[in-house]
Simulated scan of single mutants.
Amino acid sequence: MSTANPIKSDIDFDAPGKQVGYLRLPHSVNRSAYGWIPIPVASIRNGTGPTFLITAGSHGDEYEGQIIVARLIRELQPSMIQGQVILLPMTNFPAAEAGTRTSPLDDGNLNRLYPGNPAGTPTQVIAHYIESVLLARAEYMVDLHSGGTSLIYEGANMMGLEPRDAEEEVRVSGLLRAFGLPKAFLYQPNPVNVTAAARRQGAICFLTELGGGGQVSSGLVDLARQGLLNLLAHVGILSGELVPASAPAVPRMMRIEKGVHYVYGLNAGLWEPLVELGDQVEAGQPAALIHFPDDPLREPVTVYFAGSGEVICKRALAQVRVGDCLLELAGARSGNMG
C-alpha cells in the first residue's frame, strides 16, 4: 500500500479563478510541535486548456526566478487565461528562506531527489508532491534556475532533454523558439531531476539558467519573464495585453556532453580562470590554474579542457576544493533543431 503525500494545499486546483495560498508540509520541531512549512502557491484557472506549472526557488540561492514567479502571480488574471497556470515562487521554501542551495533542514537538493518519497525528509516530500500531484496534472513546466552562489551562467539560457524521436523534436523545437532565450542547451536525462520527472508524467519541462553569482540581473529577469509570457501564449493559455509582440530572441541550439564539457578542480587552492564566458575552446587547451598560497614555493597546477565548445558557465568563488566545478562548456548541436 502506497503512502499518501502529507502536503495539504490551501487552494483547490480544480476551482476556477485566482487563488493564492500555501502548500502545508507538516513539520514538528521544538519551537512548533504542530507546525507546517509554508510553500507559497498560486493557481489561475479559467475555461478549458492546458495546465502549465511554473516554479522557482528549487535552489534557494537562485533569485531571478523567485522574482519572476512572484511578479507573474500579481500580473496574471483569470480573464487572460484559457486553461490553468500553477505557480510556486519558493518551491524548496526552507532553502529559499535561508538563501542556500540546499535545505537547511535535511541538506536536500530538490532537483536531485525526484521522484521523491512521501515518507521521507522534507525535501523528498516536496519532490514527491511536485511529481505525483502537480506534474501529474500538467502538460508543461518551466523551472527557473540560475547559477546560484557558486556559479555564473552567461546570459539567459534554456535547458531541456534531448528529444526522443522526430515528432518530439518538432514539438520541443517550437516550444524553445517560442520561449526565445538566446541559447538552448539539450542534455541526456538525469532520472533524479525535474525534467525527467516531467517526462515520466507525460509533460514537457524546460529549465532556465539566468546569470548567478548570488546576484539579480534586471535584464535577465525581463528576458525570462518575456519568454515565459510568449511561451504561455504559444501553447494557447495566455492572451491579452501581457503577450509580447515576439519572442525575446532566436535561440542557438547547443548540446552539453556530460563526460567532456565539465571542468573540475583536482586540487584544493585558489583558482584562476584562463578563459572567459563566451570563449570558444579546444580539447587539451589550458582552462585554469590552481594556486597554493599556503605553500608559496609550489608551482600552480594547470587544469585542461577535456572537450571542445563554448564556455557557458564558470565558478563564481575563488576558493576551490577537489571536485568543485570550475567551468562548463556546450557544443554545437547537429540536426533539425540547429
Score class of each variant (00 low, 15 high):
S32Y: 10
L289N: 07
V69I: 12
S43N: 09
A283D: 09
N46C: 09
A33S: 14
I256Q: 05
Q280V: 10
C205T: 06
R177Q: 12
N193L: 07
A224K: 04
L228D: 05
R74M: 06
G278Q: 08
E209T: 04
G147P: 01
E139Q: 13
V250R: 13
V303E: 01
I68C: 02
I73T: 08
V172L: 15
D14R: 13
N109G: 02
E162Q: 09
Q188Y: 05
L289C: 01
A288E: 00
V281D: 04
L266T: 09
G120H: 03
Y262G: 04
A330Q: 06
P300K: 02
D324P: 14
V194W: 00
V320T: 15
Q215H: 14
L72M: 13
G211A: 06
E257D: 10
Y22C: 07
L175T: 02
G227R: 00
P296W: 13
E169H: 05
E97G: 02
P296S: 10
G108V: 01
P40F: 08
P6W: 05
P26R: 07
L53F: 09
S132A: 14
Y22D: 08
S146I: 14
G284W: 12
A42V: 02
A283T: 04
Q19P: 11
Y264S: 06
G269M: 00
M337L: 14
R137H: 11
G309C: 03
D12K: 06
T48M: 10
D107E: 13
W271C: 00
L23K: 01
A249N: 08
G212A: 02
M90R: 15
S43Y: 00
E241Y: 10
C325E: 15
I126Q: 03
L274Y: 00
I237G: 10
W36I: 03
A197F: 14
I54Y: 02
A196N: 13
S246D: 14
A70L: 14
L186C: 06
S43M: 02
D222I: 07
V69C: 04
D294A: 11
V303P: 00
S218N: 15
R171E: 15
N46W: 05
P182V: 05
E299S: 12
I130C: 01
M80N: 07
R171A: 13
Q319S: 15
F93H: 14
G116M: 08
A287Y: 00
L181D: 04
V221H: 04
V263A: 09
G259R: 11
K258T: 12
V275F: 03
W36D: 14
F93W: 15
A98T: 00
K314D: 03
N230H: 13
P40C: 06
E282I: 06
N157D: 10
L242D: 09
G99T: 02
L220H: 12
G227M: 01
G338R: 12
D106M: 03
T121Y: 08
E169S: 12
L135H: 03
R71W: 05
L231V: 03
G99Y: 03
A127V: 11
V322F: 01
S9R: 09
E272S: 05
L151R: 06
T123E: 11
W36H: 14
